[in-house]
Amino acid sequence: KEQQNAFYEILHLPNLTEEQRNGFIQSLKDDPSVSKEILAEAKKLNDAQA
């Protein structure tokens, strides 16, 4: 469930490039146990690119 939530949120971050988004999603698939950390990174990058 946590992985699904992170997946959904990353898909809807407006400021990520397609490449960045795909990278985060691939990381989620590779290691779902760190989905919280991956989501935090994605949000940080999204904010930095706002």
Results as ranks from 00 to 15, higher is better:
Lys1Gln: 14
Lys1Cys: 04
Lys1Ile: 05
Lys1Tyr: 06
Lys1His: 15
Glu2Cys: 06
Gln3Thr: 06
Gln4Ala: 10
Gln4Glu: 12
Asn5Tyr: 14
Asn5His: 13
Ala6His: 07
Ala6Asp: 05
Phe7Gly: 05
Phe7Arg: 09
Tyr8Gly: 05
Glu9Met: 15
Glu9Leu: 14
Glu9Pro: 02
Ile10Met: 04
Leu11Met: 03
Leu11Lys: 08
His12Glu: 06
His12Pro: 01
Leu13Gly: 00
Pro14Gly: 07
Pro14Asp: 07
Asn15Leu: 05
Asn15Thr: 04
Asn15Lys: 05
Leu16Glu: 00
Leu16Gln: 00
Leu16Cys: 00
Leu16Phe: 01
Thr17Glu: 03
Thr17Trp: 04
Thr17Tyr: 05
Thr17Met: 04
Thr17Pro: 01
Thr17Gly: 03
Thr17His: 03
Glu18Pro: 11
Glu18Trp: 15
Glu18Met: 12
Glu18Ile: 11
Glu18Arg: 11
Glu19His: 12
Glu19Val: 12
Gln20Arg: 01
Gln20Pro: 00
Gln20Thr: 02
Arg21Lys: 06
Arg21Ile: 06
Arg21Glu: 01
Arg21Asp: 00
Asn22Leu: 09
Asn22Gly: 07
Gly23Asp: 06
Gly23His: 08
Gly23Ser: 11
Gly23Ile: 15
Phe24Gln: 00
Phe24Tyr: 04
Ile25Asp: 01
Ile25Glu: 02
Gln26Lys: 05
Gln26Gly: 06
Ser27Ile: 11
Ser27Leu: 12
Leu28Gln: 01
Lys29His: 08
Asp31Thr: 09
Asp31Ser: 11
Asp31Tyr: 13
Asp31Gly: 09
Pro32Ile: 11
Ser33Val: 05
Ser33Cys: 04
Val34Phe: 12
Val34Arg: 12
Ser35Met: 12
Ser35Trp: 15
Lys36Ser: 05
Lys36Asn: 11
Lys36Tyr: 14
Glu37Met: 14
Glu37Thr: 13
Glu37His: 09
Glu37Asn: 09
Ile38Lys: 05
Leu39Ser: 04
Leu39Val: 12
Ala40Tyr: 15
Ala40Cys: 04
Ala40Asn: 10
Ala40Leu: 07
Glu41Lys: 13
Glu41Cys: 03
Glu41Thr: 10
Ala42Gln: 00
Ala42Cys: 02
Lys43Arg: 03
Lys43Gln: 03
Lys44Pro: 01
Lys44Gly: 07
Lys44Ser: 07
Leu45Gln: 08
Leu45Gly: 01
Asn46Trp: 01
Asp47Arg: 14
Asp47Phe: 14
Asp47Leu: 13
Ala48Lys: 13
Ala48Asp: 11
Ala48Ile: 12
Ala48Gln: 12
Ala48Val: 10
Gln49Tyr: 13
